[in-house]
């Protein structure tokens, strides 16, 4: 069940990322939905699952982007593993810690990705911090919302359904 959820989440994230890839700010896509999914999975299911999610998502993303397969995988594997470890060490069930975790994960991912790319391509390390920070904030917001929807969504739907049912009783 957990594996199925992870797989579905990653596929959905990849599909969504390809959809929003046209939205660029400063020549850079302001959100990495796939990374958000990996961080979410790591926080929700632990380091090992987060790591494998990072591997799968990163490799898939690399393969779809047409670049060197493995760089994104490495970065997301590292992020998924570390986030999973930190999530097990600290209480990250509140919004702020989750927000911070998403921001940190994005910074780490972008730094790792850029460093590996520079290493492989033989160029200098140059990280556009403004764009990275924007992406980190957007990712954090998306991630926190995702947690909120997943955690609060069923309860909200249930309350709404119960409210509708009480209105119907009053009417008849």
């Amino acid at each position: 069940m957990k594996s199925a959820v992870v797989v579905v989440a990653l596929i959905a994230a990849l599909a969504l990322q390809t959809t929003v890839s046209g939205l660029m700010i400063g020549g850079r896509v302001p959100v990495n939905v796939v990374l958000v999914a990996v961080v979410y999975i790591a926080l929700a299911f632990g380091a090992v699952t987060g790591m494998f999610a990072g591997v799968a998502a990163g490799l898939a993303q690399d393969a779809l982007s047409g670049g060197i397969v493995g760089i994104g995988g490495l970065a997301k594997t590292l992020v998924g593993f570390l986030v999973g470890v930190l999530g097990a060490q600290f209480i990250v069930s509140q919004t702020i810690p989750r927000f911070v975790m998403f921001v940190g994960a994005t910074l780490l991912h972008e730094a790792t990705f850029e460093a590996l790319s520079a290493l492989v391509e033989g160029r200098h390390f140059a990280l556009q911090m403004s764009a990275v920070l924007v992406q980190a904030l957007v990712n954090a917001i998306v991630g926190v919302i995702a947690f909120y929807v997943v955690e609060q969504g069923p309860g909200i739907a249930q309350r709404r359904q119960m409210r509708r049912a009480s209105f119907s009783k009053r009417r008849f």
Binding site: A47, V48, M51, V55, I68, G70, T77
Partner: peptide, 25 residues
Amino acid sequence: DIRKRTGWLFFAVMMAQVILVSAQV
């Protein structure tokens, strides 16, 4: 239980991807 060998597993996965990248560079 691979969960008890998390560090080694992480290392193996990372090395595998390093090799994968090296194969293309």
